[in-house]
Design a protein around this nucleic acid. Structure first.
Lengths: 182, 182
DNA sequence: TTCGCCATGTAACTAGTTACATGATTCC
DNA sequence: GGAATCATGTAACTAGTTACATGGCGAA
């Protein structure tokens, strides 16, 4: 019988995100960063330093293993592979209900107290947010067009969520800008 | 000339939120907690302990002053009042553009990797989120109805933002639930 | 020759959390 | 008699950030 280091506590969201990506294929920290940006990046994007901080923790907890790849002509890599315990931990996290989050949004804070700022501040914040939403919408729609009907149902759902969010924000912003007379 | 303690750094979001509330009237920590819940609570709600941690920091930075109110029959209060420097700092924060946040959403993470969980997990997460959105919508619409046309324009904007978000989420959730056949 | 990519990490810090402690008073 | 309200805080912890360090290689 092996003494595998176990953890009684749940994994964190970032650990889960990385385990999720590792469940597809063994990957290095460096490549995980890129994989994050290319997949869950629009709603979950940890700093690089945090990725490198989390990975050894996964190994310590027995949720992943790591080995080195020696490369000539470029720096060596550490490649991480999810373990069976890792898959179990991920599944547990995925199935656990979330506590009612009540998302924080600095933007809304600036709108709410906007009366205390100069007259243009609120409008320019709203325009900035609308810009973000517009960029997100086109980005996600482009991906949708590329992927077509095939591909991951769940991933497609997160994209349509993002598009729905973006459309709502854009619509809201337009009326808000009109209302503030600018 | 007075040596007022100054800070070169910007205030944080939570400091700004409290300064914003203090700009309306001097308030105690205890009452600030309630004021937060009743106003910006749905998009910004710090823990109680954090409110009590932030307030002395505001005083140290010269952004607020504090005095004690002795009460018989109940615990004494510390009441905080915003200073002129506090108003300036708040204004600066309000006018500063935000960095493109890219909001984190654990919920979407659970949807994205939902294929690795049991078949009901994703659906139940979606239903939970829809429930949140529905509750938020009714709550905000009730406030709108109570307030009517009068009242703070900016505050009304944050409510309509919340309602737009809620409607988008509800619509998305309905199609998603249908799509997942449940 | 300079810039960006490859690749991993450390150090110092910040913002935030949960859980606990205290103790009188008022409402049911 | 018991719970909720009033009121302030501490302690221990967690998740995350930015900025820095290193150094060779290939492309413009």
């Amino acid at each position: 019988m092996q003494t595998s280091p176990t953890r009684t506590t749940q994994v964190t969201s970032t650990e889960a995100a990385l385990l999720g990506l590792l469940s597809r294929e063994p990957t290095s920290g460096y490549d995980l960063e890129k994989a994050v940006r290319a997949s869950v990046g629009y709603f979950w994007s940890p700093a690089r330093s945090q990725i490198y901080a989390v990975l050894p923790r996964l190994v310590d907890a027995g949720l992943a293993t790591r080995w080195s790849i020696t490369q000539r002509d470029r720096p060596n890599k550490h490649v991480y592979r999810i373990t069976a315990a890792g898959r179990r931990a991920l599944k547990t996290w995925l199935e656990a209900p979330e506590a009612d989050a009540g998302g924080r949004d600095e933007f809304l804070l600036k709108v709410f107290f906007g009366g205390l700022a100069g007259p243009d501040a609120v409008v320019s914040h709203i325009r900035a947010r609308r810009g973000e939403a517009e960029r997100l919408q086109t980005e996600l729609e482009e991906i949708d067009a590329r992927v077509g009907e095939g591909g991951d149902v769940q991933a497609a759902l997160t994209r349509s969520y993002g598009i729905a969010w973006a459309k709502a924000v854009i619509g809201w912003a337009k009326t808000a800008e009109r209302e503030l007379g600018s």
